[in-house]
Amino acid sequence: MMGVLVGKLSEVIEKVVDEPLSYVINWGRLYSLWPVHLETACCSAEFGACHGPRFDAERFGVLEAFGSLRQCDLLIVFGTVTRKMMPRLKLIYDQMPEPKYVIAMGACAIDGGLYFDSYNVLPGIDKIIPVDVYIPGCPPRPEAVVQAIMMLQEKIRRNKAIAIGSWIRKKFLKKG
């Protein structure tokens, strides 16, 4: 009996509290993505171009890379990460506040790309940090960067920012 009640209650809370609140919070996060200014290799030139007047990524809700990393929530890894850059990348990722998203831009960031047999290149950044969206290309065109940002926004939109209902279910239903 208790179990049924808690189940019903958690469902109601999910519908009434979680979903509207998540929608509002996600909406706030969606269109103000702040990328960290961390250039790791040559793809940064194309990221610069995608903020120019022709592609203008800002209209999709991503800003140009300015400011301190402690106020940023998006890390775009522009291409090759070398062994010298690897500890710095990890350090920067750890310093960013939650929630944080990572886009791996270019073939080098995905699996080493052209530099698959180089002695100093990390074969894929997902070995050290989690990645949300991958952009293939060497270098990717600015349109591809814009598309990746829209895919990331779609991912954020589906994210459950608040989950009181499932928390209640987990907490009480196991005992009951």
């Binding site: 070398t82 062994r83 010298k84 047999d117 180089s118 002695y119 100093n120």
Partner: peptide, 21 residues
């Protein structure tokens, strides 16, 4: 240019082989 913790032989010597090659 090399990372601070480079402990291998200098890379442009011929006995240094690229991984997988």
């Amino acid at each position: 240019l090399l990372p601070e913790d480079w402990a291998d032989i200098p890379p442009l010597r011929k006995e240094f082989k690229l991984p997988g090659r």
